[in-house]
Design a protein around this nucleic acid. Structure first.
Length: 271
DNA sequence: TATATTGTTACACC
DNA sequence: TGGTGTAACAATAT
């Protein structure tokens, strides 16, 4: 599933591949994924060129030359594949010059393409209330400590998944960050000692950076815009390793449910 | 057919 | 009231 490192990788690839390109045509294969009626969506986007692409949380923000914004959320199983095949699970296809195309595939159909006027973008983010970007300068240790204090009673694992707390972390990197810091996912935010907070902070940043460098984790069906898998999976320490040996101690990786979500961790070295 | 998957949200509770 | 936790929802494969 695409989290910060995966969406960041896609954003960087798309910048190289489609920035400056003009959208010649759009095919909507599944009307559910767009926020307008098909004809209106097409009218809004055909002829526009791609001015810029950014990421906020797990959201792709594409500036169009028309002064509109195309927001893309891949949710669990969305893919954006440049010159990909348009067979299975293709939901929308953008056509550029020279027969190049960008195929939006989504096996589970939770992802979306949304066009909004640029003037509504601030309003949109106000509503989302995303927390800080974990790799930004703004997100320093002091801020992390302050935020944890504010949510002292919340369990640390669901808190890391909360996009209003920190933006961009999902199940994979939440589990991996907690393993790095040797903190049990069941702990409350307020129970963390100062040195644990520091370790968790460092873990989050280190892991997200490295995972981005490795072009993400293809644990589910994640693929980059070339249809290639990410390279972080061999570096995963707990996620997807239920029943296997902990790399750090002789414990066994366990998977439990916290707040309806699965959490993988080593009960021996994560306290 | 029941179940598992996760991000998001609606809602109940204290 | 607001923070917290739980359940429901989206769609699909197994």
């Amino acid at each position: 599933m695409p989290e910060l490192p995966e969406v960041e990788t896609i954003k960087n690839d798309l910048l190289r591949k489609i920035r400056g390109k003009k959208i010649k045509d759009v095919k909507i294969l599944d009307p559910k994924v767009v926020n307008f009626k098909t004809a209106e969506f097409k009218k809004n986007i055909i002829g526009a060129s791609i001015k810029d692409i950014r990421r906020r949380a797990k959201l792709l923000i594409i500036n169009l030359s028309t002064g509109q914004i195309l927001l893309i959320h891949l949710k669990l199983t969305g893919q954006l594949i440049y010159n990909g095949s348009d067979e299975k699970y293709a939901r929308a296809i953008f056509y550029f010059a020279n027969k190049n195309k960008l195929v939006f595939k989504d096996f589970r159909r939770f992802g979306y393409l949304k066009i909004i006027p640029i003037k509504n973008l601030d309003k949109y983010f106000e509503k989302e209330k995303f927390g800080p970007e974990p790799l930004s300068k703004e997100f320093n240790l002091e801020l992390f400590e302050k935020l944890l204090k504010k949510r002292a009673k919340a369990k640390i694992k669901p808190l890391l998944l909360d996009q209003k707390f920190i933006a961009g972390i999902g199940n994979i990197y939440a589990d991996e960050s907690l393993f790095y810091a040797r903190i049990s996912p069941l702990r409350t935010a307020g129970s963390l000692k100062k040195e644990e907070v520091t370790k968790l902070y460092n873990g989050i940043r280190k892991i997200l950076k490295l995972a981005t460098q490795k072009r993400g984790s293809s644990v589910d069906n994640y693929l980059d815009t070339s249809g290639k898998k990410g390279n972080y999976v061999p570096l995963l320490k707990v996620y997807g390793r239920e029943g296997e040996k902990c790399f750090r101690c002789k414990g066994k990786v366990k998977r439990i449910k916290i707040g309806g979500r699965s959490a993988s961790f080593c009960p021996v070295c994560q306290k």
